[in-house]
Design a protein around this nucleic acid. Sequence first.
DNA 1: TCGTGACGTTACAGACCGGTAACACCCTAG
DNA 2: CTAGGGTGTTACCGGTCTGTAACGTCACGA
Lengths: 196, 196
Amino acid sequence: MEDGTVERVRPRDRILETAQDMFHKHGIKGVGIDAITEAAGTNKMTLYRHFDSKDDLIIQCLRATACKAGAIWEKFEIQHPGDKLAQLHAWVRMAADCLTADGRGCDMANAAIELTDADHPARRVIKELKEAQRDRLVTLCRDAGIGQAELLADTLSLLLEGARVSVQSVGTEGPSAQFVRMAEGLIVSFRGTAAG
Amino acid sequence: MEDGTVERVRPRDRILETAQDMFHKHGIKGVGIDAITEAAGTNKMTLYRHFDSKDDLIIQCLRATACKAGAIWEKFEIQHPGDKLAQLHAWVRMAADCLTADGRGCDMANAAIELTDADHPARRVIKELKEAQRDRLVTLCRDAGIGQAELLADTLSLLLEGARVSVQSVGTEGPSAQFVRMAEGLIVSFRGTAAG
DNA sequence: TCGTGACGTTACAGACCGGTAACACCCTAG
DNA sequence: CTAGGGTGTTACCGGTCTGTAACGTCACGA
C-alpha cells in the first residue's frame, strides 16, 4: 500500500509549476515571490527552502519548460516514425499552433529580453537551451534530406521567433498569420536545391 | 537675437532622450524614475511636470524612437532616389547593421513583451507604430515590383524581428548571423515570381 | 514515545518603487 | 523693479519587492 495512495503533489513541484505559468503569463519582473507562493498554495519560507533565490527559481523554471518542450520532439518521432520530412512539417504545424494558442511567446526569449543584465545567471542557461533547440532543428532538417540544413533551420528559427514576438506586438492578424505559408514555402524551396 | 543663441537643451528633451536610452538598455521595468532623472541631470518633480506618469513617459519615448526610425526611410529615398529595389536592399543592410550594433532588439517589441497587461496604454501605441512600419515595408516592396509584396514584407519583418530577439538569447553568432543571406535570397526568390 | 524533518505562520528588515507637497530659486518679459 | 513661469530641493506617502528570523505544527519512522 505504499504506492497508489493519495500522494499529493509536493510543494516544490507546485511552486515550479505555478511559477512557470505565472512567469509565462505576466513576465519575470511582473510576478513577485508572494504572488507565486500564494497561487501555489504555500508560503514564502517553503519556497526559499527549495530555491536559493528568485534567480534560482527562474533558472529551474526555464529548465523545466525546456524539458517539456523537448518531449514534443519525441511525439514527432512517434507520430511519424522514420519520416523526418513529415516530422519537419509537424514542427511547422506545432509552431503555428503555438502562435495562435496564447499571445505570449517563447519563455526563454522573453526572459532574455527582460533580464538585461549581461551577467545574469539565467542568461547562460537561456543560451545553452536555445542552442540545443537549434541543434535539434538542424539535425531534423539534415535528416530530412535538406541540402542547406543549417540555413533552413536558422531561417525557420528566426521566422518562428519573430512570429512569436510579432503576436505580442500586433496580434495574430499581423505578419505572423502568414507563418505557415512562409515556412512551407521555404521547405519546398530548400528541397528543390537538396543534394540527397 | 532670439535664435542662434545658446539655448541649452530643455529638461523635457533631456529626460526624453535619457529615458529612451535607458529603457532601451535596461528595459522598462528595469529603470526607475529616479535613475532617469538623475542621469538626465534633473529631478523627479520636473519630470512629472512634463509627463503625466511613467506610462506616459514610456509612450512618448516609443513615439520619439519611432520618429527617429522613420527618418531612416527618408535617407533611403535620398541615397537611392526612385530606385525602390535599391532602397529595399538598403533596408536589409540597415537591418543587419542594427543586429550587430547593439545586442538589444526593437524597443517596441521589447516593450510589448515587458508590458504583459493587455490593457496597458502603451500597447495601443506599439500596435499602431508597428503597423505603420509594416505598411511602409509593404509599400516599398510593391513599388520595387515585387509580386507578392505583402508576403515578402511580412516575411522580412518576421525574420528581422526574430533576428533581433535571437541576438539577445544566443548572441550575434547564432541564427541571426545568416540574416542578410536569408533576406537577399528571399528578395531574389520573390523577384523571380514578380508580375512587373 | 520520542525525535526528526518538512511545512506553515507571523513578523520583520532593508531597499526600491511611483507619485506628491511645500518651498526656494532664478531668469526673463513686461 | 516686479511678477511669474520654469526649475531645483527636500521630505514624505503608501506600496511592493526579495529575503530572513523565530516559532508552531504535523506526520511519520525508529
